Simulated scan of single mutants.
Amino acid sequence: MAHTVTFNVPQRALGREDIEFVVERDGVRFGTLLVSKGAVEWRPANKVYKRRLRWEQFDQLMQESGRRV
């Protein structure tokens, strides 16, 4: 199960427009990760909704659930 990640970076300082990371698994879109100055969002493939975490929440999630490397 190989993942491919591509991204588009806006041509200006990070603000309202997100940096978009397209994540593919075995050549099929797995989802899109959107990064902004206020939050990180995940939009699964073929879904309209997104899941949002503020940076403080993301930090807490990674501290509790992330694997130390």
Rank of each mutant, 00 (worst) to 15 (best):
Q63S: 13
I19F: 02
G31V: 02
F58K: 02
L61N: 02
A45F: 03
F7C: 13
P44K: 02
V22K: 12
M62E: 04
R54K: 11
S36E: 05
L14K: 02
P44M: 06
V69A: 14
V9R: 13
E56M: 07
A39E: 12
Q63L: 11
Q63K: 09
P44W: 03
R29H: 07
R25S: 11
V40K: 02
Q60G: 05
M1G: 08
F58R: 01
E24C: 01
L34W: 02
V35G: 00
Q57K: 12
A39C: 10
R43C: 05
E41W: 01
E17M: 05
L53I: 04
P44T: 06
F7M: 10
Y49W: 08
L14Q: 04
E20I: 12
R29S: 04
R43D: 01
A2Q: 13
D18Y: 00
Q57E: 15
V35D: 01
P44Q: 06
R16Q: 09
E64Q: 10
F58G: 00
N8F: 01
K47S: 14
G15Q: 08
D18H: 04
A2M: 11
K50Y: 09
D18Q: 07
E41N: 04
P10M: 09
R52N: 08
L33T: 03
A45H: 09
K47Q: 14
G66F: 09
S65K: 05
V22N: 12
W42S: 07
R52I: 07
Q60L: 11
D26S: 11
H3C: 06
G66Q: 04
G38I: 05
E41K: 14
R25G: 03
K37I: 14
K47P: 02
F21P: 00
A39Y: 09
A13I: 05
V22E: 10
R12G: 03
E64M: 12
V23G: 06
R43H: 07
A13L: 10
V23L: 12
Q57W: 04
V9K: 12
R29I: 04
W42N: 04
M1L: 09
V28I: 15
A13Y: 09
V35Y: 02
E24S: 09
R25Q: 15
T32E: 07
K47Y: 07
R68Y: 09
D26W: 04
F30E: 15
Q11H: 05
E24N: 10
Q11R: 03
S36N: 09
E20H: 03
E56G: 11
G31P: 01
G66E: 07
F21V: 00
F7W: 10
D59W: 08
Q63F: 08
R68F: 13
V28H: 08
G31I: 01
E64V: 10
R52E: 13
S36Y: 03
F21N: 00
V22Q: 14
G66C: 12
T32N: 03
A39M: 04
L61Y: 06
E64C: 08
R67A: 14
D59R: 11
T4S: 13
E17G: 01
Q63E: 15
I19T: 10
V48E: 14
R52Y: 09
R12H: 12
G31N: 03
G27R: 06
S65F: 10
G31H: 03
G15R: 07
A13E: 14
E24L: 01
K47M: 12
F7Y: 11
W55E: 11
F30L: 05
R25K: 14
Q63P: 00
E41F: 00
F58Y: 13
F21W: 03
R54N: 09
R12P: 00
R16C: 06
P44V: 07
